[in-house]
């Protein structure tokens, strides 16, 4: 049989009637209280005054943002894979064709509209993972706030603002034609 007989600890009479156990418990909590009161232990960080920014690990996942490369090209080609993968459906993209007058016309496609609804975003990083163009990255910005819902929707301009320029990425479009 798959029954496991658990051996309960054998309690002495004073343990059974909560006498010694009660004292023991009270001493433990008292110990914690004293340690905190004497300032020997510090767990809580006083957030707005103290920040963790310097200690953020490299893999920290903050707000997603679009990046441009060292040539000033917006890397997003509007393949809409992030829109597809996004679990909370926070991303909305409307693609457009790059006009032939544009220096990067050979890339052909770019987003006309790229919105990330930061109220919906769950910072999962799927968009970064799925992006075939290394165009979207999760930055370390975490304090994304706004006074209205509309303010919490990051549009293309804002996303490039947060993302900035990223160098050293694969530039597969450069050797086209």
């Amino acid at each position: 049989m798959a029954t496991v007989v658990v051996q309960r600890p054998k309690l002495k009479w004073h343990e059974k009637w909560f006498i010694s156990t009660l004292a023991k418990g009270l001493l433990i909590t008292l110990g914690h209280a004293i340690a905190i009161l004497r300032g020997k232990k510090k767990v809580t960080m006083q957030y707005p005054e103290e920040k963790w920014d310097a200690h953020l690990p490299d893999h920290y996942r903050g707000a997603p943002a679009l990046v441009t490369d060292e040539h000033g090209r917006e890397r997003c080609v509007s393949c809409q894979l992030c829109e597809f993968i996004c679990p909370p459906r926070a991303i909305t993209i409307i693609p457009e064709e790059i006009p032939s007058t544009d220096p990067w016309a050979k890339v052909e496609k770019r987003p006309r509209l790229f919105n990330i609804d930061m109220i919906r975003c769950i910072y999962c990083g799927m968009c970064e993972e799925v992006c075939p163009e290394q165009a979207i990255f999760l930055r370390k910005d975490y304090a994304i706030t706004g006074l209205s819902r509309a303010e919490m929707v990051h549009d293309k301009k804002r996303l490039y603002e947060i993302g900035g320029v990223r160098e050293g990425l694969v530039n597969k479009w450069n050797d086209l034609k």
Binding site: T29, H32, A33, A35, I36, L37, K41, V43, T44, Q46
Partner: peptide, 10 residues
């Protein structure tokens, strides 16, 4: 406050 200091909080 007391519960907080007992639980190592503020």
């Amino acid at each position: 406050r007391v519960s907080a200091i007992i639980q190592d909080r503020v």
